[in-house]
Design a binder for these strands. Structure first.
Length: 482
RNA sequence: GCGGAAGUAGCUCAUUUGGUAGAGCGAUAGCCUUCCAAGCUAUAGGUGGCCGGUUCGAGCCCGGUCUUCCGCUCCA
């Protein structure tokens, strides 16, 4: 495992060196836990997103895609529970490293006092909480010598406001403006559009709504490269089902999603299920599909049976009826009628999927050349269908008409897939550069091409090469990438 | 968030106790070259993370700050 941790550092370096991922605002020393995708990374990420989108929407007749805004009405986050669950003043004990919600700490202390003193301190606490007086809360804790139950000390940090949601103001006049949040998850954009999509798309249950997009969480700590970021991209699908059938669909999506990961080249033995023991307030079943990252098994995708919690909450807060009329006949021959659908959610982190793909792809190879000296390379064995660049077109020499033939091939292929043209440097160096960015195929045009219209195609993973007809190159790549 | 360590060219690293920075690789341009990081020539690139202090003088000492790494903690 120690080797794999080191290897992870090398993967991160490689990502920067070859234009996959840069730290955000690196020019200004960077912004913690925020990353930019570079020229190679953006294309790879887009390819992954496209594969997911196609598998969800194009290949399922009963799933449609939407693209909801990042800004949503503030009440959405009250209905979803995020406002209540994700913002509290907290304090840490420096000796035990234990973190407390300030109100819990003071309430616990008040119970150790007699009734009058206990009530007095709670009244004071409520006043300070209402005034957002964090320094006052700290003073209150200090003055009463409230101790940590673990370390028994009063060695406290300052009181700090933790809010996992990013907030900003909408409306340009500060006094009249409302606080709104950058969405901490994309799911709510689907729930609030449930009726719109169901009615305009004439969708019949069971059906799904898919969406990809950015979400934002003000994480307390954020580490492990792009595994946990403040700004990240989710690809998720909410599948609406008849109440009582949710477990059936939960199991269906559990299987389907794992198979999809395998279909983009993730080995089955690197994936596993992890059932949640402690369920979130909205779920009646939940599991993670975990991947064995270089730093251990971690969640890649979540499958949650969310019951009718979300739609019911939005119905309550919006005071609108959110129901579906089911004309299908039940066992007694009568329509199932009106009900609030249950939801099975699949939610995969696109950045985590990206990290999965590159950690699997990154390979260091060493071997002995014919003259006995050692040779080596770093190769990104990214599956052809998601590789950022599919084909490199390399004239062996930049003279004798070879670049002209290469340009012709470039012209023929670039409408179909992403090609890269290079005539600088020795051929071996160009192959290595293509290995480093994961280009699965290189085609070299040489003098023989002029005689018999064949070219050398060189395969990234095996480094083997063979001669094929100039005219067959395009279809070979298209077939390999489909 | 807490504790520890680190930050010199794109990368890997030098610069012996304080005296205004070098190498290899890489990159770019050219020459040469018939298939796996070849050779030759030239060029670019660093206010030593940033701010402040001590000193005649700071990459080196001190403080702060930012970022990263390691351990703990927290979390979808």
């Amino acid at each position: 495992m120690a080797n794999e941790i080191n290897n992870f550092q090398e993967i991160i370096s490689h990502c920067k060196e070859y234009g996959f991922i840069f730290q955000s605002s690196e020019l200004y020393d960077g912004l913690s836990a925020v990353y930019d995708y570079g020229q190679m990374g953006a294309q790879l990420k887009k390819n992954l997103r496209d594969e997911w989108w196609k598998s969800m929407t194009q290949l399922h007749d009963n799933i449609v895609g939407i693209d909801a805004a990042i800004f949503m009405h503030p009440t959405v986050w009250k209905a979803s529970g995020h406002v209540d669950n994700f913002s509290d003043p907290m304090i840490d004990n420096k000796d035990s490293n234990k973190r407390y919600r300030v109100d819990h700490l003071i309430e616990a202390y008040s119970e150790t006092l007699d009734k009058t003193a206990g009530e007095a301190i709670l009244i004071e606490m409520d006043r300070l909480l209402a005034a957002d007086d964090l320094a006052g809360l700290k003073t209150l804790i200090d003055n009463n010598k409230i101790k940590c139950i673990i370390s028994k000390t009063c060695n406290w940090t300052d009181v700090r406001q933790f809010n996992l949601m990013f907030s900003t103001q909408i409306g340009s006049v500060a006094e009249e403006s409302d606080t709104i949040y950058l969405r901490p998850e994309t799911a709510q954009g689907i729930f609030v559009n449930f009726l719109n999509v169901q009615k305009t798309g004439r969708m019949k249950i069971p059906f799904g709504i898919a969406q990809t997009g950015k979400a934002f969480r003000n994480e307390i700590v954020a580490r492990q490269f792009i595994f946990r970021m403040r700004e990240f991209e989710q690809m998720e699908m909410q599948f609406f089902v008849r109440p009582g059938t949710q477990m059936e669909w939960y199991n269906f999506w559990k299987e389907t999603r794992k198979k999809w990961h395998e279909s983009i080249g993730i080995p089955a033995e690197k994936l596993r299920y992890h059932d949640h023991v402690k369920l979130a307030h909205y779920a009646d079943a939940a599991l993670d599909i975990e991947f064995e990252f270089p730093f251990g098994w971690k969640e890649l995708e979540g499958i949650h049976s969310r019951t009718d919690f979300d739609l019911t909450q939005h119905a309550t807060y919006s005071k609108k009826k959110i129901q579906y009329f089911d004309n299908d006949l039940n066992a007694e021959g009568k329509p199932y009628g009106n009900y609030t659908p249950f939801v099975v959610e699949t939610s995969v982190g696109l950045d985590r999927l990206f990290l999965t793909v590159i950690s699997l792809a990154y390979t260091e190879e060493k071997w002995n050349k014919e003259d006995g000296t050692e040779d080596s390379r770093v190769v990104m064995k990214i599956p052809a269908k998601i590789a950022p660049i599919k084909l490199a077109i390399l004239p062996l020499l930049k003279k004798d008409g070879l670049p002209e033939i290469a340009s012709q091939l470039m012209h023929d292929c670039k409408q179909q897939f992403h090609c890269f043209y290079e005539e600088k440097d020795a051929i071996g160096k160009r192959y290595r550069r293509m290995d480093a960015i994961g280009t699965p195929f290189c085609v070299t045009i040489d003098h023989q091409t002029k005689e018999d219209n064949t070219v050398t195609i060189r395969y990234r993973d095996t480094m083997l090469q063979e001669r094929i007809n100039f005219a067959d190159v395009k279809n070979l790549v298209i077939n390999a990438c489909s």
